[in-house]
Design a protein around this nucleic acid. Structure first.
Length: 415
RNA sequence: CGGGGAGUAGCGCAGUUGGUAGCGCACGCGGUUUGGGACCGCGGGGUCGCAAGUUCGAAUCUUGUCUCCCCGACCA
């Protein structure tokens, strides 16, 4: 990717109409464009980060036999009337509209009912179970107030997975494997050390759900944790949960967190409401056991920024950065720079080459602001000694390396 | 939805006894520059969020309205 071909521009100053760190930096560095409150468009840079996060999630979902599909944003009224959730008194964040013939439609704020309705057509027998399906969807929610930049928008990308089972035991077992998969996701996103599975309120269909909460000052939740972090409870269910876990709630310390995932078991309640049954080995009809698993993709992106940035700008974890190397070429050395650019790309490294004819200082400032993990500088000075200058975004030290040493270094740091 | 703050050029901002809009950055042209956001000269760009009203005259005063941010409420 050449900087001269990117339409994106960085801003000298952060936008004044945002106060959330993630939104300020993303707009300033050219990753997102704000359309309205809680609604953000993603530039090629922002899209790359989003896709990188999705790919990690996708790999982990595939690893637990999730089958990817994609539902629709337009939803039928009838789909939601079955569970009473079309009613605006029950769900106050609906965006609704009408077809030209007057038919009411809703814009998907969730896809639970929609997916179950669809799966009902394909699942009849115990032989069809278990099954697990997931999608990445843009959810539309008419929030009264959007806030915290991309962390709580009216339009956001979510991965939602649904598993269907013929027995409680099968669901419970699968549920635990998904918890493990989720831990892998947050580990790979660089949030492993600060993300915890917590007890949270269960809502309409189950007593407790599990939330994945990441310690984050910009978060909206308060978690109560014990000393070794083996127990974490959402403040909203502190009393009930501590009782259930047999711990003294006064021994738990509060910490501010952001929810980055939410999973829960519906059991058979929802299936019974939606007439989602299978025929068992006994020849009888039984309700299907259901569980649901969500990850807020765009929200995770925001949380990563809130946790990882400095006064110069963004600092992406390598796993989701839009490029691995920010190549700065200085002086009239286009041919040599192009060779280095191609060499790095050919060895599988994503390079953003700043080939613009602007002053070096501006390129350095942009490299920092955009948060690309490694900066490589090539100039007449480095060429004289057959080296390039290498610097990690997180370090203030530079190193002079030969091309071979550079490749080795970049491949070694990759995991 | 309650409370608070704010809308003036692409971005950040200034602009009070009311007199027809300016600065920095960005942008275009010319030149000098080139390892941490250079400098000089010239130039383009704004129905001052929108709508009414007061006035000879409104960015400025009045009313209404829309939008954005923050706190709260809300949040499968």
């Amino acid at each position: 990717m050449k900087r001269s071909q990117l339409f994106v521009k960085t801003l000298r100053e952060a936008p004044a109409d945002e106060s959330a760190r993630n939104a300020k930096l993303l707009i300033q560095a050219g990753y997102v464009y704000k359309v309205m409150a809680g609604v953000y468009a993603y530039t090629p840079l922002g899209l790359r980060v989003l896709e990188n996060i999705k790919q990690i999630v996708r790999e982990e979902m595939n690893a637990v036999n999730g089958q990817e599909l994609v539902m629709t944003s337009l939803q039928r009224k009838e789909t939601w009337e079955v569970t009473g959730r079309w009613d605006s008194d029950a769900v106050d964040i609906w965006f609704k509209s009408r077809l030209q013939d007057g038919t009411e439609v809703g814009f998907g704020w969730s896809h639970e009912e929609a997916i179950i309705e669809m799966m009902r057509q394909y699942i009849q027998s115990y032989k069809d179970l278990p099954i697990s399906v997931y999608q990445f969807q843009t959810k539309l929610r008419n929030e009264v107030r959007a806030k915290s930049g991309i962390m709580r928008g009216r339009e956001f990308v979510m991965k939602d997975m649904y598993s269907m089972h013929s027995s409680q035991e099968d669901m419970d077992q699968y549920y635990d494997t998904v918890i493990a998969a989720y831990n892998c996701i947050y580990e790979r996103l660089g949030l492993g050390d600060s993300t915890f599975v917590t007890f949270a309120s269960g809502g309409a269909f189950t007593k407790f759900s599990h939330e994945f909460q990441t310690i984050c000052e910009a978060g909206e939740d308060v978690l109560y944790m014990n000393q070794d972090h083996s127990i974490a409870v959402n403040g909203e269910v502190l009393d009930e949960a501590s009782e259930e876990l047999h711990v003294d709630k006064n021994s738990l310390e509060p910490v501010t967190t952001a929810e980055v995932g939410n999973i829960f078991k519906f059991g058979t309640d929802k299936s019974e409401k939606m007439d989602f049954y299978f025929t068992g080995e006994d020849g009888q009809r039984h309700p299907i056991y259901l569980a649901s698993y969500g990850v807020g993709i765009t929200r995770v992106m925001g949380v990563v920024i809130e946790k990882c940035s400095d006064d110069k700008g963004l600092i992406w974890p390598e796993a989701i950065a839009p490029a691995t190397v920010y190549l700065v070429s200085i002086g009239d050395i286009e041919d040599e720079a192009r060779k280095l650019y191609e060499m790095l790309q050919n060895s599988g490294i994503d390079v953003l080459w700043d080939d613009r004819s602007v002053r070096p200082g501006e390129k350095f400032a942009d490299a920092d602001l955009m948060g690309i993990p490694y900066r490589v500088v090539i100039s007449p000075k480095t060429l004289e000694n057959q080296v390039v200058e290498y610097k990690a975004r997180t370090s203030s030290e530079t190193e002079l390396l030969s091309h071979d040493e550079l490749l080795k270094k970049l491949h070694d740091t990759k995991h």
